[in-house]
Amino acid sequence: MYVQIKNLHYQYQNSSKPTIKDFSLNIDQGETVTILGESGSGKSTILRIIAGLETPKSGSISIDGKIVVDERHFVTPENRGIGMVFQDYALFPHMTVAKNIIYGLRKMNRKQKADRLDEMLELVNLTDFKYRYPYELSGGQQQRVALARALAPSPSLLVFDEPFSNLDANLQVKIRDDIYTILKKTGVTSIFVTHDQADARVLADRIVFIENGMINRVGPPEEVLGCASLLMWANSN
């Protein structure tokens, strides 16, 4: 197994109930998994724990055979080699598109950086926008820069936190398809967190449906999305 998550527990300091209860999941290399759930179900917290932005109460995570967190170890976010695309993209407003993308390429020399930058810009189809600042881009373009920035350091795992929620409805479908194509082109292992069943259906090899911090159902999209409780949830939304 490429990513192994075992018995994750998590509780916020000022809360009486645990946010995540006994969460376990294995992910194959190159697989795309979508964590689907309502707001407040704990799905984003799982992503933040995997990324190293939160510390679990107990449980362990290993990526590619290396333990990143357990009872005794904690690898800091900057040393986990995980790429993350944030809900609001978090593009550095004081840097150009190019500067944003090469920001994570600390260990490369100038030539390598320039090559990688061009490669990434081509991948996300933004070659002409190199010297723009984030505020000069549309929402969809910002989204693609965020993806390019996360992919540039060749992360072992790429995670997305509600990546389409800030986009117009008509743009969502297009961007989603673009991202799907790019992901399949690079073959990177990825996890999406979303509350949107359509997103989950299009993107996922497998869907993890969570409720109240616990896994309700895991499986291929057609299997998970067919079940009754999910239909009810979808109707109530």
């Binding site: 990324a51 800091t76 976010p77 900057e78 944030f86 978090a90 994570g104």
Partner: peptide
């Protein structure tokens, strides 16, 4: 805090 988190996710120290 997102910008800080984004930076650290890109492998840059605190």
């Amino acid at each position: 805090n997102t910008f800080t988190e984004a930076s650290r996710m890109l492998g840059v120290s605190q």
